[in-house]
Nucleic acid binder design. Structure first.
Length: 486
RNA sequence: GGCCCGUUGGUCAAGAGGUUAAGACACGGCCCUUUCACGGCUGUAACGCGAGUUCGAUUCUCGCACGGGUCACCA
């Protein structure tokens, strides 16, 4: 990153379906590196594979990037100086570049047909060799080439890689990597149909778009030497490489959108906040300098540093995502929390007379994912058929007997509360506790059990009583007394 | 199989020859507290193996093991 050209990075996805987490993380890092350097973040759609093209996938890419705040500066929809930004619309330009390489001796026409190649490969494999183009057409004379061309024999253009020596390239994450040139295959640049292969189009596109930093998965590590040979053959500047290791589902499997592995959309549908997901995946394979781990996107721009990117693969950990999501939910303003939680609250209870502020206040510190909410409040509509064993709690010093006493004493007290507000209920209940001369828990624990019928609840008995309303509260206490009287 | 890459607690990871080997999540305990949660404190838990270099290796070198990637007229 020594050069001082303005930084330009690109995210170049193929529209083949969902955005999975690994993809999104690459997009995030690509965005961050651009922004960190006050550079330009470009979106390029690589849609040349008609076989794998999925209808609507481009929109998923747009929506995901927008929802996460990864706004691109140049792209198919907004244009820019280096368009078009859809690869299929750039197809015309590549062949001339390849021919230029043929001129300069860095590429050559190859007339081998698929049958011959297949045969060759079979023999190589059978004899334990690495399958590789044998250079059959590598040294055809100009005349031979012209002759075959004139005869209309189908051809491809192949890169002419050096066969001796080594090629070394530098990666910001992995350091210097050296390979033997003898292992480099004379890969096809232009196919029989005149279209470029991915690798070739990628190099030409990146250069013509002025890309200075290439951020991509480390599955490209092994083809990078060939990329560099291409850059050199053209006399172009080699970009800074930042290869990132994959996001794994477990120790041996990459995260994939197949079999239910989390895609960004799934996560959002499950009740995760976009910001939390972004925050979490930033941490998957990258470590900040300090000890803080909670970052907004803007803070990430500031904190991000390529030197913190890890070389080893990272296993996706739902528990940590959940914890971070919980931290984000707690940071929400009460208004925002209500807005986001409302659908889940309505899913959990049919009652619409509840005081949302009261409910939200109880729920907010206890919610890690919004989908947890319905189950937390399912006791509101209907008192669960709980076991009286629940009235026994050793720390509260309660048992069915004294619980029954407490509930009986509570009944007239609560009936006497005129204005059913938290503070009033609280005062009356505590008066009773003082009168009875018992520990708070002896009255409060039975109350909470009676009104909720649950082991754990969001909030204590008094809060729940306020929420349920006087009538329902008294009804449930009666139920408790009945159960305990049997 | 050839080549390339990787390997610190259960997970994410800091570390870059000498450290009590950070921190976060998860887990246990304590405190707070009317349950749970939040918050605070605290605990258990790690350098894949074997040589070598060195006064000294988690850190450097080489093997090995394990895992991943790549070897297409796919992207």
């Amino acid at each position: 990153m020594e050069n001082n050209k303005p930084v330009r990075t690109r995210f170049a996805p193929s529209p083949t379906g969902y955005m999975h987490i690994g993809n999104l993380r690459t997009a995030l890092y690509t965005y961050l590196i651009a922004k960190k350097n006050h550079g330009t973040f470009i979106l390029r759609i690589e849609d040349t594979d008609r076989e794998r093209y999925v209808e609507g996938a481009v929109d998923i890419i747009y929506n995901t990037l927008k929802k996460t705040g990864l706004q691109w500066d140049e792209g198919p929809d907004i244009g820019g100086p280096c368009g078009p930004y859809v690869q299929s619309e750039r197809m015309g330009m590549f062949k001339a570049y390849a021919e230029q390489l043929v001129e300069s001796g860095h590429a050559y026409y190859c007339f081998c047909d698929k049958d011959r190649l297949e045969e060759m490969r079979k023999i190589q494999v059978a004899s334990g060799m690495v399958p590789k183009y044998d250079g059959h057409c590598r040294n055809l004379s100009k005349e031979e080439v012209a002759e075959k061309l004139a005869a209309g024999i189908p051809y491809v253009i192949r890169q002419k890689c050096p066969q001796e020596g080594t090629t070394t390239f530098h990666d910001e994450v992995f350091g210097d990597i050296t390979v033997n040139n003898s292992e480099l295959d004379d890969q096809i640049l232009i196919k029989t149909d005149g279209m470029p292969t991915y690798n070739f189009a990628n190099v030409v596109d990146d250069h013509t778009m002025g890309i200075t930093h290439v951020i991509r998965g480390n599955e490209y590590l092994s083809s990078t030497p060939k990329y560099n040979l291409l850059y050199e053959a053209f006399g172009w500047d080699i970009p800074t490489y930042i290869h990132v290791s994959p996001v794994m589902k477990d120790a041996t499997h990459k995260l994939s959108k197949r079999n239910g592995d989390a895609s960004f959309e799934d996560l959002v549908a499950k009740g995760y906040l976009e910001e939390a997901v972004i925050n979490y995946i930033a941490l998957l394979g990258w470590a900040p300098k300090g000890e803080n781990e909670i970052f907004t996107l803007d803070e990430l721009i500031d904190a991000f540093d390529v030197s913190g990117i890890s070389r080893s693969p990272a296993i996706f950990d739902g528990a940590k995502l959940k914890a971070i999501n919980g931290a984000y939910i707690r940071k929400l303003t009460p208004e925002k929390f209500i807005e986001l939680a409302k659908p889940y609250i309505e899913q959990g209870t049919g009652r619409r007379d509840l005081d949302m502020n009261v409910l939200a206040e109880m729920l907010q510190p206890r919610t890690e994912i919004f989908t947890d909410i319905p189950e937390q409040i399912d006791f509101i509509d209907e008192l669960p058929d709980y076991d009286i064993a629940m009235y026994s709690h050793k720390k509260m010093k309660t048992n069915p007997e004294n619980s029954l006493e407490s509930l009986k004493a509570l009944l007239p007290v609560l009936e006497g509360v005129e204005d059913w507000k938290l503070q009033n209920i609280h005062d009356k209940v505590f008066e009773l506790i003082a009168q009875m001369g018992v520990k708070n828990g002896v009255v409060l624990w039975p109350l909470r059990v009676a009104v909720s019928g649950k082991q754990f609840t969001p909030g204590g008995g008094i809060e729940i009583a306020e929420l349920l309303g006087k009538e329902e509260t008294l009804r449930r206490i009666h139920t408790g007394i009945e159960k305990l009287s049997k």
